[in-house]
Nucleic acid binder design. Structure first.
Lengths: 111, 111
DNA sequence: CGAGTATATCGACAGTCGTCGATATCCACT
DNA sequence: AGTGGATATCGACGACTGTCGATATACTCG
């Protein structure tokens, strides 16, 4: 999937001029990726962590959902380009992609 | 449904501190409302119109989807608090709620 | 190597969503 | 009143999504 930053870098705020079909599709895909309570909480926990990076082992418990589900949500966020995964030993760490959320926010703001 | 502005006015950017379940639910609901290509295009057309207001009759044709579907999307946007409806004569006009998109964008931005 | 732990993938299931055709409602005009 | 146009609602259908349990994979430590 096209990462957020590439998808968002292209165009002016959507309140400026009518969006084309392709641009609308791209932005919708990015928004869908974060339009879920569990994923928003994952993002916020990761963002508030040291170096904006968190171990999966610290993400499973506070959300009160199963481990496979957490893994699924992290995959959606990764595919959309909001976080990146890096495995160190037995543990997996997810880190926020700098500017990813901002590039989406920039498109929404009323110019 | 709780309108965007009320839902978003409450809290700090989600990259600052972990989101609670209720706040995550609210923000996710607002994001879901705009996480659709057709609705994004509707918003962008309305926003680019005179007075940030557009007649439904001008919204049906450019999107290449049926009239009931357009009506449905406008309802979702209205329920979520992004636009308001006003009927004048036989025509219905939808106007952007000032600051609605911005209040969502503010929550996403990396502080 | 073998046991244990961490994470991802798979398959299934219920619930939600986008779309449509048909129909209802409301308004303007004759 | 009656006709025609504009918009909303209804009911249905297929597609997608979030969740789970079971299982696979990969790594660590004895």
């Amino acid at each position: 999937m096209l990462p957020v930053i590439a998808a968002a870098a292209c165009c002016a705020p959507l309140t400026r001029e009518p969006l084309g079909q392709a641009q609308a599709d791209d932005l919708a895909r990015s928004l869908k990726a974060i339009a879920d309570p569990a994923r928003l909480r994952l993002i916020s926990i990761i963002a508030a962590s040291e170096g904006q990076e968190a171990c999966v082992c610290d993400l499973t418990e506070p959300l009160d959902i199963g481990q496979p589900t957490v893994s699924h949500h992290l995959r959606v966020l990764t595919d959309a380009g909001f976080v990146t995964r890096s495995k160190r030993g037995a543990w997996a760490y997810y880190q926020l992609v700098p500017g990813a959320l901002d590039s989406v926010a920039r498109l929404l703001v009323t110019a």
